[in-house]
Amino acid sequence: MRGLSAIYTIWYRNVLKYFRMKSRIIGSLGMPFFFLVIIGFGLNSTIQVPGMEVDYVEFIAPGIIAMSILFSSMFSGVQLVIDKQIGFLKETLVAPVSRLHLMIGQALGGATTALMQGILVLIISLFIGVNLPSLSGILIALVFMFLIGLSFTSVGIAFASRMEDTHGFQLIVNFILFPVFFLSGALFPLDRIPDWLSFLTYIDPLTYGVEGIRYGLLGATQITPVLSFSALGGFLVAMLLLGSFLFNKIKI
């Protein structure tokens, strides 16, 4: 009970801060929006997705939703670096709650705000060409969106646990974000690419997230949803363990 209340408290703080920063909510919608509109419509007429009955803009919409969640969740780890700097972390570490609960609360908080960011992009994509999917399709997409958010927030926490300054954190995260995004099959189909590239896309955990959302929203996918779910779930467990392990080792 006490653990749950601690998790809820940390989650609540993150969500409270998210809603207070309206400019950040709007600002971080910029990149996914331009990706969708410019790349989506720019290439819509030149590219036909083989084996799928969808436009290119529809094809990449799940990828862009995944991108906005990826970015938002990884960067949410910066809150932990800031909490070290402003001392707030000490206040939570000296409270009678376990570090595991603090970490889970932080991860759920980051995942929730990332999910909200993803939902906003989902809504935008409905306006610019994606057909309204079935309710069960939306639910499936939401599950995958949440899994992406939670696992990459844990990655962010893992990095943030070892870092003392926000600039360093941002540099490292950027270094990882772009390969993870571009290799995920967000922008291109997974078959008909060279073997070496194919290999890289299949070891990129985001690939399974993108394919899961794609299955939910478009009903079309190149990886079976069960495999996507298992792969992403396994990645999530590993990252939660890594994040908790490193969070536990934070020295103050």
């Binding site: 006490r2 209340s5 601690a6 809820y8 408290t9 609540y12 703080r13 409270l16 801060k17 207070r20 402003i86 001392g87 707030f88 972390l89 000490k90 206040e91 939570t92 000296v94 409270a95 009678p96 709650v97």
Partner: peptide, 26 residues
């Protein structure tokens, strides 16, 4: 504990800082 360096969340109000503390202590 009142630490030497501040440990408040300055983006929150005084009441919210207190409230989060109270929740953490159940």
């Amino acid at each position: 504990v009142v630490f030497q360096d501040p440990t408040l969340d300055e983006e929150l109000t005084a009441r919210e800082n207190m409230d989060i503390h109270g929740r953490l202590y159940g």
